[in-house]
């Protein structure tokens, strides 16, 4: 079966540093993949390339079989690739509803009434419905994380890249986010999740990809990967 998104020989060089080193990764429709690795191992850089926020120095990205490396983020978004950021990025001086409407109306052939209806439905799903008139900067940290997820959902994404969704999140909210991801996954959405919270990741995903120093060092079922000697070595910080 054709992968939903695939990277071949993907490299990113910053000055003299090879941040991502010939990465090969393919994600099938409906998968829920955890992408882990120590700090500086190239996880965020990889996501940034797979969503168009960075141009790869070399290699190919195939989105539903179509060459897409170096395309603008908006082009990825239009092809139903959603993402969140490591540090929550909202339109802080716009209301919650407006935050949702930006992606809703950026889609071709969208209508305001329909986009508003969808936005309200997603806000309801995320438990933010009552806050739609508030400015985003007045939300709590946790609500902001949810809103960012909601904004990505407005793209009706087939695949969602979540960059550290559990960082700085209290245990209750963490469980809530896990529940939301599971529901969305059950609807058929594909996820790639980067996080340091191994416990949360293990509760969620079946497949783990491990990166270290820009390269993929393991890729497989959670139980296999977590006993991989190379992974243990990478995490021991050798």
């Amino acid at each position: 079966m054709q992968p939903l998104i695939e990277a071949r020989g993907l490299c990113k060089r910053f000055g003299g540093i090879l941040a991502v080193d010939h990465l090969a990764l393919s994600v099938q429709q409906g998968e829920l993949v955890g992408l882990i690795g120590p700090n500086g191992s190239g996880k965020t850089t990889t996501i940034n390339m797979l969503t168009g926020h960075l141009s790869p120095s070399a290699g190919e990205i195939l989105l539903r079989g179509e060459r897409s490396e170096g395309a603008a983020p908006s082009s990825f978004a239009a092809r139903r690739v959603g993402r969140t950021f490591q540090i929550t990025q909202l339109f802080s001086r716009m209301t919650v509803l407006e935050n949702m409407l930006v992606p809703g109306l950026a889609r071709p052939h969208s209508h305001r009434a329909e986009a508003t209806r969808q936005a309200r439905a997603h806000l309801e799903f995320l438990g933010l419905a009552k806050l739609e008139g508030l400015q985003a900067k007045n939300l709590s940290g946790g609500q902001q994380k949810l809103l960012e997820l909601g904004r990505a959902l407005m793209l009706d994404p087939e695949i969602l890249f979540l960059d550290e969704p559990f960082a700085g999140v209290n245990p209750f909210l963490r469980d809530e986010i896990i529940g939301l991801i599971q529901k969305l996954h059950a609807e058929g959405r594909t996820f790639v999740i980067v996080d340091h919270d191994i416990e949360a990741i293990q509760r969620l995903v079946k497949r783990l990809v491990v990166m270290a120093r820009g390269a993929k060092i393991a890729d497989g079922a959670v139980e296999d990967v977590s006993h991989d000697p190379e992974v243990l070595r990478a995490y021991a910080g050798v």
């Binding site: 969503t51 603008a72 908006s74 978004a77 990025q89 339109f91 407006e98 930006v102 793209l155």
Partner: peptide
């Protein structure tokens, strides 16, 4: 709406599909 989104956060606007 897109103008204001770009003013607030270009990176996020791009991720939201704004050209």
């Amino acid at each position: 709406l897109f103008f204001r989104a770009i003013r607030e956060n270009e990176e996020a606007a791009a991720a939201a599909g704004v050209k």
